[in-house]
Measured scan of single mutants.
Amino acid sequence: MAAAAAAGAGPEMVRGQVFDVGPRYTNLSYIGEGAYGMVCSAYDNVNKVRVAIKKISPFEHQTYCQRTLREIKILLRFRHENIIGINDIIRAPTIEQMKDVYIVQDLMETDLYKLLKTQHLSNDHICYFLYQILRGLKYIHSANVLHRDLKPSNLLLNTTCDLKICDFGLARVADPDHDHTGFLTEYVATRWYRAPEIMLNSKGYTKSIDIWSVGCILAEMLSNRPIFPGKHYLDQLNHILGILGSPSQEDLNCIINLKARNYLLSLPHKNKVPWNRLFPNADSKALDLLDKMLTFNPHKRIEVEQALAHPYLEQYYDPSDEPIAEAPFKFDMELDDLPKEKLKELIFEETARFQPGYRS
């Protein structure tokens, strides 16, 4: 834990890192770190609560700039109880001085990944967590956004079992017609939660990839272990087919990539493993919904509104309290091709509203 900075004593240090967030945020305490930044909790002297502050230093890398800009653009436009918001952003007053960006968010005690390492969940908890994931996802999908990296560590939890989806750095506007060349190379989302079509096709992607990830998360809540822990690309596919069985001819016809289709045709026939054999203690309604989410063919996979209306979630289902976005989200430009200098300018502009004396 960093010592509390005395008023006016300059930035606090946390594990050798400068955290320049005073005077409003003090009493910093280390939480963890990701690929390009550290997260601390801090005391907000204005709202009198502890908050989470993520320090991001992305400006050396085009990919990190892209992810940072995506996350900020999306989260500043989203407003939903099951999606983490941005409360404040701290950065230098000029673009030349801006080396880091500090993002202030609600402090959540833990995440689903940490929880599943230590606790076996009751059916009631599984049901409530799944409902909140789908409630947040309904809003995301209504904005025409794909999260693309749903996994237990991106689901934040607090002691009252509130759940918030975080990390929109890989999110995209849904565009089933656009052929994202190089899709697989830039697709760094965790393999275990990846839909089979991501490994088999490169053309376009749809909201059904997020539903697949939610199915993987439900299976993990039922058993405290990942359902498809593939060691590499082909191993991942083999794990999936080992449980779902061989795809039907109709399902194979959806695979545009001939090499991928021929690979699947070359494999020995596998039978589907019954879900109640894998999860003998699970609620039968939970397994019915799991089956509809972990469907090989993305066109037959359940959609988020149908999933919310499934009998497993009937005690929570309330369409009048499951809000959607006001308007579909649009990125003005494809960020993939922009140089990091341009992305830095866009991050600077996007964060201006939090600067003292800002006038829109």
Rank of each mutant, 00 (worst) to 15 (best):
P280N: 07
E305F: 02
M38S: 11
H310T: 01
A219Y: 12
L252T: 11
I126F: 14
I227D: 07
I165D: 05
L264T: 11
L134Y: 09
A9C: 01
R353S: 14
H232L: 15
A35C: 07
G169W: 05
Y358K: 11
K73C: 05
F279P: 01
A3R: 11
Q306L: 14
P311D: 07
H180F: 04
D111H: 11
Y128R: 05
L157R: 10
P196R: 06
C161N: 04
T190S: 15
D111G: 06
G37S: 15
H299C: 00
Q119I: 09
R359S: 15
R24E: 05
F279D: 02
D336G: 00
I72H: 05
K340E: 07
F279C: 08
R225S: 15
K138C: 07
L134T: 08
G182L: 10
L338R: 01
P247W: 06
Y43S: 12
P339H: 08
A195F: 05
E109K: 13
V39T: 06
M13I: 15
V188D: 14
R91Q: 01
D235V: 14
R191N: 06
R359T: 11
D177M: 04
E349V: 13
Y263T: 12
D318R: 01
D336C: 04
L28S: 04
P229Q: 07
R172W: 03
L107R: 12
Y233G: 05
K151M: 14
T295P: 15
F279E: 07
T160M: 03
S284C: 06
F168K: 07
N45P: 06
N82W: 05
P319V: 07
I84Q: 09
F78V: 13
H232E: 02
F59W: 08
K164D: 06
E341H: 12
H269M: 07
Y187D: 13
Y64V: 15
P247D: 09
I198N: 14
H120T: 08
L234H: 11
G22M: 03
Y317M: 05
P152E: 08
P356H: 13
D332E: 13
I324S: 12
A3M: 09
V49D: 09
D283N: 14
A195H: 01
S41K: 06
L69A: 10
L157F: 11
P11Q: 11
E303F: 04
I217G: 08
N276S: 01
E71G: 13
S284M: 06
G357H: 05
M108N: 02
R15Y: 00
A2D: 11
D235T: 02
Q355T: 10
A307V: 10
Y316I: 07
S284R: 08
L130T: 05
T206S: 15
Q66W: 04
Q306V: 02
L313E: 09
S41F: 11
R359E: 09
V145R: 06
A309Q: 05
H147L: 14
K272W: 12
Q249W: 06
P311K: 02
L115C: 01
